[in-house]
Amino acid sequence: MNVKKQLSTGLVSAVLGITLIGGGTYAYFSDSEETNNTFAVGTLDLAVNPTQIISVDNIQPGDSFIRDFELQNNGTLDIGKVLLETSYTVVDAQGDNTEDFGEHIEVEFLYNLDKLDEVIYKTTLAKLQDMKPEVINEKVFEPIFDEEGLPTGEMNDLVVKFHFVDNGKDQNQFQGDSLDLTWTFNAQQTEGEQR
């Protein structure tokens, strides 16, 4: 046999030997199991009942209106905060308004029907519209919810008193006017937790 064939044969034998040895070092027993896992996301579902809190006609300075409504948690997650956004538009019937009608409508948030004289927070619609929702939550909803929020399946009664303030001055500019009020209640979840 010539030297080239001997070297080639030797090299092939060495590679084959290393392969067999290497393959042998990776042989081991094995087993496997599969797990099935699920992440199901909960829901926030805040309901307001009734959806129209107030609708009145022919009001005059000095009139007051007390209305109650419910906030309901119909979701599967606890509600940590309720943020209230206020917006309104005024229809100026005579086109002579020099003041904002919303500055003359006072709003009082009250505890509940058996405590009508206990005011949680009092302001005007104009100021309420300019307030940040987080501030309203702090001043109105935290005292009502006792900082616990609104748990799943629970509801809370709210009472509001609207008052057309008689300021003792000429308020003729508001005759025939109307104010359309929109309250948007936004629910936020509680803090996440380790479970």
Score class of each variant (00 low, 15 high):
157 D>P: 06
2 N>Y: 10
61 P>C: 02
64 S>Y: 05
168 G>S: 11
169 K>M: 12
155 M>I: 10
101 F>Q: 00
8 S>W: 14
14 A>Y: 09
97 N>T: 14
96 D>T: 15
86 T>K: 00
84 L>Q: 03
154 E>N: 13
21 I>W: 03
119 V>D: 06
44 L>Y: 06
59 I>N: 01
56 V>H: 05
190 T>Q: 06
61 P>H: 02
122 K>V: 10
155 M>F: 14
186 N>F: 09
183 W>M: 09
128 L>V: 05
9 T>F: 14
181 L>K: 02
66 I>C: 04
143 P>T: 04
188 Q>D: 11
71 L>M: 07
128 L>G: 01
151 P>Q: 08
149 G>A: 08
133 P>W: 01
108 E>T: 10
153 G>S: 11
106 E>K: 04
76 T>V: 11
111 Y>E: 14
181 L>H: 01
130 D>I: 05
172 N>K: 08
178 S>V: 12
13 S>F: 11
76 T>K: 07
33 E>A: 13
140 V>S: 00
60 Q>F: 02
155 M>D: 12
59 I>T: 05
35 T>R: 09
177 D>H: 07
124 T>D: 13
152 T>V: 15
70 E>N: 09
39 F>L: 13
32 S>H: 10
32 S>K: 11
162 F>R: 01
63 D>F: 08
47 A>F: 05
80 G>D: 05
53 I>K: 00
3 V>Q: 13
5 K>G: 10
107 V>H: 03
149 G>M: 01
10 G>I: 08
132 K>N: 14
39 F>C: 04
94 Q>M: 13
82 V>W: 00
140 V>R: 00
3 V>M: 11
187 A>L: 09
4 K>T: 12
111 Y>L: 13
29 F>L: 13
43 T>C: 07
1 M>V: 13
160 V>R: 03
157 D>H: 07
171 Q>F: 05
98 T>M: 09
22 G>W: 03
78 D>Y: 02
86 T>R: 00
150 L>P: 01
90 V>M: 04
34 E>P: 01
35 T>G: 03
189 Q>V: 13
149 G>I: 03
153 G>R: 12
152 T>M: 08
73 N>S: 08
142 E>V: 10
86 T>A: 03
128 L>Q: 01
106 E>Q: 15
123 T>S: 15
161 K>P: 09
82 V>C: 01
141 F>L: 07
124 T>E: 10
5 K>A: 14
183 W>Q: 02
109 F>C: 01
167 N>W: 06
164 F>E: 04
179 L>T: 02
149 G>D: 07
42 G>D: 06
128 L>R: 00
15 V>Y: 03
107 V>F: 11
67 R>K: 11
100 D>L: 09
8 S>L: 15
134 E>Y: 10
32 S>N: 11
71 L>P: 00
124 T>Y: 07
189 Q>E: 15
192 G>N: 14
193 E>F: 12
97 N>L: 14
44 L>R: 01
47 A>S: 11
24 G>V: 06
